[in-house]
Write a protein that binds this DNA or RNA. Structure first.
Lengths: 69, 69
DNA sequence: CCCTGATGTAAAACTAACTTGACATGACGA
DNA sequence: TCGTCATGTCAAGTTAGTTTTACATCAGGG
């Protein structure tokens, strides 16, 4: 699953640490997410989207697999 | 975090087992989600929303905590 | 009355999300 | 050159999502 975190974070001139603090996770978590290493929890995805004033689907990009991804 | 899973599932006359199969998880997972026992992964939330033809934010309801939820 | 299907619980086990800490690198300014 | 800030890696540990199995209840149909 891809996402626009890095792009959005840089757009807002936020550091990884800033962003982590805003959504209440560690910096490692942000790094791993930006690198697409895993699939966040829904709540975290939601908080991130809100930081950027977007909807979840506008931040996280789901390969449009019809079937089983 | 609340959600409309039960309502939507019944609207579409799906059984918990049907829904579980459609999104590729176990029936227990659906039960726990309907009862609000936890916070799904983003991917699961996305698949569920798609089954019902909705957006994630239309299925899962985030108490609108400004701050730290 | 019994059988079956749908829903629910409980507990143990596994996996994936997330944390913590230690360390490496490149860019930049003093 | 030295310090520092932002980014990154790695590895080990904790927590929470998810699975599996086994069992209980209730409703409806034969």
């Amino acid at each position: 699953m891809e996402n626009r975190l890095r792009e959005l974070r840089e757009r807002d001139s936020l550091t990884q640490e800033d962003l982590a603090a805003r959504v209440g996770v560690s910096r490692q978590t942000i790094i791993s997410l930006e690198r697409g290493r895993y699939n966040p929890s829904l709540l975290l995805a939601y908080k991130l989207a809100r930081v950027f004033g977007l909807r979840i689907e506008d931040v996280f990009i789901f390969e449009d697999g019809k079937g089983d991804e």
